[in-house]
């Protein structure tokens, strides 16, 4: 994760960001699927799925429950292995990686689970610090990093609470903070707004927008809620003169919001493109999905 403008203001040593940056590695997709197939028993879960997520891009994966959306992100993490095809992360073919080799890949990937998947026996602090404690980093650095991440999700006050004391939305936000520790270059959201009230769902989407526009994180956002798509594809985050993060609507301005949409149906990609293209489609299945009737 790159430093925010506030960080630069606080720490002048980091101002070497003004130096020229080698952009050649940005040509390599953060995630690439090549003709991936997966079946459970006789049921095809993924059928020849190919797509790529570019560096800094947010890919929204839409589709009905059970359509294979969550399977895709589980495969990127190596929690499931494909029957055929290739999966590349930062240009590295991870398809045949062992569990041990995957541990290294997972260090660069953050994952936000549907219900947060916080460890019940650990406090919010210990949950967010989990990855750092595993790496035996000194406690002072850990606390600094945990507080920074909890500030990012606006939950620093909950640092000493146990997961059971948190609301659903707070659990997801702690889950996001935990996923962001260690500055992953790829973050995956598995239906992070499912079952949340609209303002909390909006907060979660804002966090994803901040990650995309201010932190240059590549992400996959699995959802079946159309308002998530609206937020992520029509708004962008920027920093005002006072250093505050603000969200602006695309409106009539010409701007390139770095978000692409993909839709799955029965394990196959039936749409891939921008949100405008999605709304212009005449496919009856997609139209029914968008309109909900």
């Amino acid at each position: 994760m790159q430093a925010s403008p506030q960080d630069f203001a606080e720490n002048p040593d980091q101002q070497d960001f003004l130096q020229p940056i080698d952009r050649t590695d940005r040509m390599i997709p953060a995630i690439e699927f090549r003709d991936v197939e997966l079946s459970f028993d006789d049921k095809k879960i993924l059928d020849g799925v190919s797509f790529e997520v570019r560096k800094g891009e947010t890919k929204i994966i839409l589709g009905r429950s059970g359509g294979g959306k969550s399977t895709i992100i589980r495969m990127i993490l190596g929690l499931l292995k494909p029957d055929a095809g290739q999966i590349l992360v930062d240009g590295e073919d991870i398809t045949a990686y062992t569990e041990k080799e995957m541990m290294g890949v997972r260090q660069h990937i953050g994952m936000v689970f549907q219900e947060g998947a916080l460890f019940d026996s650990l406090s919010v602090y210990e949950n967010v610090a989990y990855r750092l404690h595993e790496q035996h980093i000194d406690e002072e650095t850990v606390e600094k990093e945990v507080r920074r991440m909890l500030r990012f999700v606006d939950l620093e006050d909950a640092i000493d609470k146990m997961p059971i004391e948190l609301s659903g939305g707070m659990r997801r936000r702690v889950g996001i903070a935990r996923a962001l520790v260690g500055d992953p270059t790829i973050v995956m959201f598995d239906e992070p707004t499912a079952g949340l009230d609209p303002p909390t769902a909006r907060t979660i989407c804002e966090l994803a927008i901040k990650l995309r526009d201010l932190e240059d994180v590549s992400s996959i956002f699995v959802t079946h809620e159309m308002n998530n798509l609206d937020y992520l594809s029509s708004e962008y985050a920027t920093v005002d003169d006072d250093g505050n993060v603000i969200f602006e609507e695309e409106g009539e301005k010409i701007c390139m919001i770095n978000t692409r949409v993909m839709m799955l149906r029965d394990g196959k990609i039936i749409f891939s493109g921008s949100d405008e293209e999605l709304r212009r489609t005449e496919d009856p299945y997609i139209l029914r999905f968008i309109r909900g009737k």
Binding site: R74, L77, G78, L79, E99, K100, M103, R106, Q107, I109, M111, F113, Q114, E115, A117, L118, F119, D120, Y130, R131, E134, R178
Partner: peptide, 18 residues
């Protein structure tokens, strides 16, 4: 079992722990 159904085991693996 509770950790499996609440995806805590997946989260643990995703965070790089066996």
């Amino acid at each position: 079992g509770s950790m499996v159904v609440s995806q805590q085991i997946d989260a643990m693996r995703a965070l790089g722990t066996d």
